[in-house]
Design a protein around this nucleic acid. Structure first.
Length: 941
DNA sequence: GACATCACG
DNA sequence: GACGTACGTGATGTCC
């Protein structure tokens, strides 16, 4: 290949720079810079350029300067290794959105530095590096690989070294041996055994680098080891090797680099050339890297080219930029689009820029019933447009119906024109609470994608600090109070719908909303990185939007007759109870009024009981009435019965009927993604996450939730997920072991705590241990446990003390978590979701609440993250099956499935749910999912 | 609109 | 030593 007489050979020194690795490292190491003139993300490019410049500077002068150099990139994520093993690198998340446009720019950067820039389809950068390193070595030259990637360490030796440019650390044979426990020539054997969760190389289960090195050193090499696997004494290791021999061999093929990559150039083509002064400066200037441009210009002894930036005084910070360059809201330009030409001009501009803030105006907050009234768009701060579509004149005839106002483009036509834009994968649609708009569009046959959502960004950034509604965000982050919807619609009975709002007012309001959304997006987008919540936003929150859109639009079928019959039965029973209650009280009063009830019980009948706090009213909660009933008083007992029926009737059997959609015959709840600070969803209108189940009477309500004919409801729920997570986080070996062995965890806790053998366990002791287990998750206190178990506080404290004695790791977790929260003002889930705890350092009772919330949040939140991950993966897993995901109830998912697909769907969903933490997280405990099936939700659970 | 109550995980 | 408490939600009815 190379001409050894005159070309690459002895005395030559080849530098191979692992470009792809540096992009990712630069991206994660640096704050998210954007180009000032247009907001193009360039942080990774900046880091990459700085690295190259430093590299050239350090090497240019040294005696060890490279004679040849190249930067090597990955061509794409799919390579020939996917042919060997389908799942190779299947775990890799998509690169973050603001990194993607930087990939081609880094190639440009490499070329601007006049370095040979190489990428080859189907091959990873590592293979090209391996091939070039082999060629150089065979030609008698030296090689330095600028990378810290452990996958390249197999190449070290025989004149090949590595250099971690960021740490400026050499990696030679000794360093490789230190890392892998074997020499470079056996690195692949160790990697094949140990596997790699990052690249999804399977390896042998239970064998890590340490064990792998031990085995390889003992048997010499991998093949010998596999052939003689029967000789291994440890039964687990032996089985792991014998059972997985094939997988291990595949793993080796995955980690073994291909040093025979076909290349259409020679080493001689990689000879170092000095950078072209003008090309380099032009590139850096175009990227608007001022400091580096100046530095490079100084080096060449020339003037830097004229900066293209707008304001010479603007500082590097985005805050300064926001205040100097953004028009204020007073001078904002909001237009009303009433003709096709204007609309098309806007669309052309959107296509050019590649993103747009979108907001829909409708007649209802209920997306399933809402009529689309208008759409607003915003491309850059201060410039927004509103497209009125179905505004109507006020007044109207007897039924309120009126003709459309003149001067509006036809709805259908506008949707037809907008559809390709809204569905264009190259145009980012930005919204505030996009789930709402996505449903509005979905009901009109438009799948809006891809999206960004400022509400979800705020949730990831500021969870626990404040709400994430547009008014709050605009006030806090833009210092602007938007036009209130109330000022347009009024409130209460006289409120009008948005279609009755005048088009001028509507334009001001709607365009402003889109404008605010765009400005919030510009502000939040770079902050996601700074706060390290990009992964949370991009992998846990945003992808949930289309999933929930599908679930909410599907709804669940509810049998009105069942509910109606139950309502009647409840009414009758309540009437009977009321009569008894009046009789016992000696007068008629409103049983539903705690105030009146308190006066009857404690004043008139002089029962024991006290006043309560702020309002001075008697407390008449269920626990107090239960105590009274236990003492033999009939009235409180009857009231308890009445209250239960009243609750079931008003909240469920009556209210649920009103939520049955007239067209679909189904109930469509709405999930609030930002509803709970911990990462849980909240369900509203109606809340389907609190349908009764604990009482037999209430449970019957679930028989009204039914499957379509020929279908079944399937419910799958995580067993004890929060306790499992606690065992993992706190690292409690005995609990972890119990979960691994499938033991009764509450009985085991009881046995440990009270020294009762499992065979002699009584339900009562187990019940107490169960209460303690739950208490621990909630940030246990003697008072709370005492109240829950109805035992003296000193006894409860004794239990807790004993518990901590037996499980000291739990106390350590609690103390560490509270300490972290006090120091950082937040806690985190295992997936990096941040939950802020602003009250934790407060004085007074608030601190107690904050402490317990801080202890609970990582546990509850990690569980919430896990089921989010499952929900995001499930639709793909069952895409080919006649099944629909309908509901989520924190640790449970409910599906409607064609009868003959029940078993397949159950198996697939269970698999997804049980593996939902992986590959990001490898829990020390198994996740177990229970499943049920039936014609109604009562049977399925 | 605040409060008490009670449904769920 | 006192404080005042289990964690996270939403819907309903009463009362001001």
């Amino acid at each position: 290949m190379s001409n050894r007489e005159t070309g690459f050979g002895k005395g030559c020194h080849l530098h191979l720079i692992d470009g792809s690795a540096y992009i990712f490292r630069a991206y994660h190491a640096l704050p998210p810079l954007t180009r000032k003139s247009d907001g193009l993300p360039v942080g990774a490019v900046a880091g990459f350029c700085n690295m190259l410049w430093r590299y050239l500077g350090e090497n240019g002068a040294s005696a060890d300067a490279p004679t040849h150099a190249a930067v090597i990139f990955d061509y794409s994520s799919k390579t020939f290794r996917n042919e060997i093993y389908e799942l190779y690198k299947a775990n890799r998340p998509e690169p973050p959105e603001d990194l993607r446009p930087q990939f081609p720019l880094t190639r440009d950067a490499s070329r601007a530095f006049n370095l040979a820039t190489i990428e080859i389809e189907d091959y990873e950068a590592d293979d090209i590096i391996a091939t070039l390193a082999r060629q150089a070595r065979e030609a008698g030259g030296r090689v330095t690989i600028i990378s810290s990637d452990k996958d390249l360490m197999q190449l070290v030796g025989g004149g090949v070294e590595m250099l971690d440019a960021m740490k400026n650390k050499q990696i030679g044979v000794d360093e490789v041996r230190e890392k892998f426990g074997v020499g470079p020539e056996r690195v692949v054997d160790v990697q094949a055994l140990a596997g790699d969760s990052v690249d999804n190389v399977p390896g042998a289960p239970g064998i890590g680098i340490k064990t792998a090195a031990l085995l390889i050193n003992e048997y010499g090499d991998l093949e010998t080891l596999l052939e003689r696997a029967e000789e291994i004494k440890q039964p687990k290791r032996r089985a792991a090797l014998i059972d997985n021999a094939e997988l291990i061999r595949i793993s080796k093929r995955l980690v073994l680099l291909d040093d025979q990559t076909p290349l259409d150039f020679t080493l001689d083509d990689l000879e170092v050339r000095p950078p072209d002064e003008k090309a380099l400066l032009d590139f850096l200037n175009e990227m608007e890297f001022r400091t580096l441009t100046r530095r490079v210009a100084d080096h060449f002894g020339t003037e830097p080219p004229a900066a293209p930036t707008l304001s010479p005084t603007a500082s590097e910070s985005d805050a300064a930029q926001a205040s100097t360059e953004q028009p204020d809201f007073k001078s904002a330009d909001y237009v009303c689009i009433r003709d096709l030409d204007t609309l098309k001009t806007w669309i052309a501009r959107i296509e050019e820029i590649g993103h747009v803030a979108v907001d829909t105006e409708t007649t209802s907050l209920d997306e399933m019933r809402a009529e689309l009234v208008g759409i607003s768009l915003c491309i850059d701060a201060g410039h927004a447009a509103y497209i009125p579509l179905t505004h109507r004149a006020g007044g109207g005839d007897l039924f309120g119906a009126t003709e459309l106002v003149e001067g509006q483009l036809p709805l259908e036509q506008v949707l037809e024109i907008l559809k390709p834009v809204l569905e264009d994968p190259a145009i980012l649609k930005i919204g505030q609470n996009m789930k709402y708009d996505a449903k509005i569009f979905a009901n009109r046959g438009i799948t809006i994608t891809p999206i960004d959502d400022t509400m979800l960004m705020s949730y990831a950034l500021h969870g626990g600090l404040h709400g994430h509604g547009m008014d709050t965000l605009s006030d806090r982050y833009l210092n602007h109070q938007p036009i209130s919807i109330k000022s347009l619609l009024g409130s209460g009975k006289s409120a009008i719908t948005f279609d009755r709002v005048g088009i001028d007012d509507a334009t001001r309001y709607a365009a402003e909303d889109a404008d605010i959304t765009l400005r919030l997006w510009q502000m939040f987008k770079p902050r996601l990185h700074a706060a390290q919540v990009t992964r949370v936003y991009e992998t846990l929150d945003r992808p949930l939007v289309p999933v929930l859109v599908q679930m909410e639009r599907s709804g669940i079928k509810v049998d009105r007759d069942v509910l109606s019959r139950m309502s009647n039965a409840f009414a009758q029973k309540m009437a009977g109870l009321e009569a008894e209650i009046y009789d016992l009280a000696g007068e008629r009063f409103n049983v539903g009024s705690p105030k009146q009830l308190g006066e009857i019980l404690f004043d008139k009948m002089s029962l024991e009981g006290g006043k309560k706090g702020k309002t001075g009213a008697y407390a008449t909660g269920a626990d107090i009435l239960e105590d009274l009933a236990a003492e033999g008083h009939d009235l409180p007992a009857r009231v308890l019965d009445w209250r239960q029926l009243s609750k079931l009737k008003s909240t469920y059997t009556d209210a649920l009927q009103d939520h049955i959609h007239p067209d679909t015959g189904r109930v469509h709840t709405s999930y609030v993604i930002t509803g709970a600070v911990t990462g849980r969803l909240a369900s509203t209108d109606p809340n389907l996450q609190n349908i009764p189940i604990r009482s037999e009477e209430g449970r019957r309500i679930r028989t009204a939730f039914v499957a379509e004919t020929g279908h079944k409801l399937v419910a799958l729920d995580y067993s004890q997920i929060e306790l499992r997570i606690l065992a993992h986080i706190a690292g409690i070996d005995s609990l972890k072991q119990a979960f691994r062995e499938g033991q009764d965890i509450h009985a085991m806790t009881a046995s440990e705590m009270f020294n009762v053998p499992m065979e002699e366990m009584t339900p009562e002791i187990r019940r107490q241990a169960k209460a303690i287990n739950f208490g621990v998750i909630y940030g246990i206190s003697g008072f709370g446990l005492a109240r829950n178990l109805r035992i003296p506080r000193s006894d409860a404290q004794g239990f807790i003390d004993r518990y901590f004695e037996r499980f000291p790791g739990i106390r350590a977790y609690m103390d560490d978590t509270v300490e972290f929260a006090k120091r950082e003002g937040r806690v985190e889930t295992l997936f990096g979701r941040r939950i802020h705890t602003p009250e934790i350092n407060a004085k007074g009772p608030g601190a107690g609440f904050a402490k317990r919330a801080a202890i609970n949040a990582p546990i509850q939140g990690t569980a919430a993250d896990i089921i989010r991950r499952a929900m995001i993966r499930v639709p793909q897993a069952i895409a080919d099956l006649p099944a629909t995901m309908l509901l989520q109830v924190h640790d449970e998912l409910v599906f409607e499935v064609a009868e003959d697909a029940v078993d397949t769907v159950t198996a697939r969903v269970r698999e997804v749910m049980e593996a939902a933490a992986e590959p990001v997280l490898r829990l020390d405990v198994p996740l177990v999912v229970d499943a049920g099936m039936g014609d109604t939700w009562a049977e399925a659970h």
